[in-house]
Amino acid sequence: MTIQTLLFENECRKHLSNRVYWFIVLFPCTWVLLAFFSMLSMPLSDFRQIVSLTSGDFNPSHFYQNSLKTPMRFLLTIYYVALVIYVVDVEHSGNTWKYLFTLPIKPKDIIWAKFFFLIVSVLFSFVLFNIFFIISQALLEHYRSDFGYERYPNNAWIVTIMIIKIYFTSFFNIICILLLTLRLQDYGLVFLIAILVHFVPIPPYNPFNLYFTALGKQHFLLKQQGIENFNIIYLFDFKELLILCAFLIPYLITSFYSHYLIKS
């Protein structure tokens, strides 16, 4: 067994027994549950009103799929940041970085093992997300027949391909976030940068900047799919956006201030 395999095995043993890891990996799936329950409890009149105000596409499958895929990149950014910070922080909180670097292994092998573990975790959460999505779609078709599912085609595979693309083009983000976390060792600042990078993908992108290139690639793929305004506001209704801001803004302000207070 090579040292890389051993380190990867160690990473798995280390994290799979931690509840925090499962909480983070299941985070993207909570969005499916949220969308599913809001769709399940939505009155038919509200559904028609929202559809006519936004896309005008009355296909309930599309409405449900859009409500998942539109905030996907933003949610994945949060997910990646949380996952990377967790994987790095496990070593910081236990003072184990120092010990790891005194072991007879190359430091680059330690970082590669962590990176592969992150990739596997992303793949794992992707599989879980799709299982949740397919089951919830089937349940909706069964329980909300009043939306008129039988009249419209259900192109669930399209959204699955879209989610695959979003997941995989975001691998660059993981590398960037991992490097940022290791370099800065300030989780609040890393979160802040990742969120800012998410909100600043305005063309023209800087081709020399990996982070922006990754985001540019996502934008290009989404344009090919016919999505012009891939923005958080695209399908969120105002109330949801407010709720999200209520959670995010205090966190961002706290992170920002804590960073500068610590530095000063």
């Binding site: 280390k14 931690n18 509840r19 236990g94 003072n95 184990t96 120092k98 005194t102 007879p104």
Partner: peptide
């Protein structure tokens, strides 16, 4: 790597994973 194999370390507080 071969040298480090022959040296053990305890730097300040023990390096432990609390959840393990």
């Amino acid at each position: 790597i071969e040298v480090l194999r022959k040296i053990g370390s305890l730097i300040e507080h023990a390096s432990l994973y609390g959840h393990l």
